[in-house]
């Protein structure tokens, strides 16, 4: 990701996290600017509304700045850690709502037309590195068979285990497991190729 600008969400600097933990107001502001769009998009996708998503984000940024949760470099790159944290908190909140309601299964990772509309939003998420990654993910995702997309979406965005996915998709559990494994494997190949290419640059 050498092509990334300094404000790319995918290239958050671990030192920035350390400054946030030290209580630097400016650092927290910068962290928010770089990461909030991706995290908010994720929280909205999981929770289905902006209000709950905003609560989750507020909780996360305050916890990070107050050192309730601590980032350390051993946990990978900062953005990956923040995404994991956001996903976990959002799914916790989703589950706390009570019995799971069946949500409409549909494309959550945008097709090109949708992204053209939404990408008019200006901000840190428009950095070249993030755009490259986004385009790559969308393209790789679009190449997956629909059943693989649905199975992975249910698991990742709703925290639904394979047995329940099988019930929802009306498929045998083994079929669902195979679908997810194949889908993840395909995405891994695409991303590994991209990362190797990027490192070579």
């Amino acid at each position: 990701m050498n092509t990334a600008s300094q404000l790319a969400a995918s290239t958050l600097d671990p030192k920035l996290m350390a400054r946030v933990a030290k209580g630097e107001h400016q650092a927290l502001s910068q962290l928010y600017d770089q990461s909030s769009t991706v995290l908010f998009s994720l929280a909205v996708r999981i929770l289905g509304n902006g209000e709950d998503a905003a609560d989750v984000l507020q909780e996360i940024y305050l916890d990070v700045s107050r050192k309730v949760v601590r980032y350390d470099v051993g946990r990978g790159i900062p953005m990956a850690w923040l995404i994991t944290l956001t996903r976990s908190r959002a799914i916790d909140r989703l589950r706390a709502r009570g019995p799971r309601t069946l949500r409409q299964i549909g494309p959550s990772i945008d097709d090109t037309r949708t992204s053209q509309i939404d990408d008019r939003h200006t901000g840190p998420f428009d950095s070249q590195a993030d755009q490259e990654l986004r385009n790559l993910i969308r393209e790789a995702w679009a190449n997956l068979p629909q059943i693989q997309q649905h199975a992975i979406e249910l698991a990742y965005y709703e925290g639904v285990p394979d047995t329940e996915i099988a019930a929802r998709l009306n498929q045998p559990v083994e079929e669902v497991k195979t679908c997810i494994a194949l889908g993840m494997s395909h995405l891994r190949e695409v991303l590994q190729s991209y990362w190797q290419q990027d490192e070579a640059v």
């Binding site: 769009t37 991706v38 908010f40 902006g50 953005m79 945008d110 939404d118 998420f125």
Partner: peptide, 18 residues
């Protein structure tokens, strides 16, 4: 490797600014 893949998913979502 697979976790590295999973955390890229949000980058492909519809952009929703906070």
């Amino acid at each position: 490797e697979y976790q590295s893949v999973a955390v890229t998913f949000p980058f492909g979502l519809t952009i929703t600014p906070p």
